[in-house]
Design a protein around this nucleic acid. Structure first.
Lengths: 141, 141
DNA sequence: AATAAACCCGACTTAAAAAGTCAAGAAAGA
DNA sequence: TCTTTCTTGACTTTTTAAGTCGGGTTTATT
């Protein structure tokens, strides 16, 4: 609901890479199997992730993907922001979410959407990939 | 992103009805025009909303829709919960959001999704239709 | 050098969900 | 009785997401 299937796949792939930090390149097919993601589709997704600088790839015989940063320092929020890209200028920016408001400036929902957005990214930003690897982290604060 | 276009229409329609509480039935075409919603589509949506008991309709000459409860007592959360209906049993219930987890019980995302969901509905539940009518309310938690 | 294992890239297809439309019918007031 | 307005369910269109495919390039091994 909050994330597309594709973006969940991306996060899962990063988590999988995080689990194997230090063990050399991880093949797409390994990640695909571990996380039950269609291999071809995952190739597309990892290709996109390379652009984020979070991940790099090595080609050839013992090739595969490698997580660049440290899992404790990568937040879920930063990944999601990258995946979502720039907001579509055709959408209403006040409402953050979808399409133009009929009532341009006086959007009754603006405040609500802002609060929701802040709450959600507040959580995303305080959750790291390492937290996900560890499975169930309850954030203090 | 959090709400479909359709569900936003539904909320807008309720807000429009709330604005006119006490002035008798409001025609679909009036709501449609005020909120820039395709009339035929709005008929479908209002039909659905009748099932919630939030709204009732009067037919014929001076017919239209009427909000049943008081805008201060209707929360956005209750409306959205109604609109979204029962969660699809095919989806992963632990993750609250989409599809089955590949890693059934040990879903790394379960805690994250729960926290996000609670945060979002926390906001939805403390926001009333009246708050939306008033335009910009900053909730004092 | 040849081979095989990987990633790389862009275009393509399919599938699913959401958005929107339509026609004919039933109630209610004028 | 006539007009207005909601009612219903099925239908169509549009958009977005998901997933596939073929042929190419890089790299380690032998």
């Amino acid at each position: 609901m909050f994330l597309t299937q594709r973006n969940q796949y991306a996060l899962r792939a990063i988590v999988e890479l995080a689990k194997r930090v230090g063990t050399g390149p991880v093949k797409v097919s390994e990640i695909a199997e571990a996380q039950a993601i269609p291999r071809r589709f995952l190739e597309v997704i990892l290709g996109q992730l390379k652009g984020s600088g979070l991940v790099t790839a090595k080609r050839g015989y013992h090739g595969g993907y490698i997580l660049i940063g440290e899992p404790e320092k990568i937040t879920v929020g930063s990944v999601i922001r990258y995946l979502q890209g720039e907001p579509d200028p055709k959408d209403c920016q006040t409402c953050v979410f979808k399409l133009q408001c009929p009532t341009d400036r006086e959007c009754a929902f603006a405040s609500l959407w802002n609060r929701v957005n802040e709450a959600v990214f507040g959580i995303f930003d305080e959750t790291t990939i390492q937290d996900l690897v560890e499975g169930e982290k309850v954030v203090e604060s």
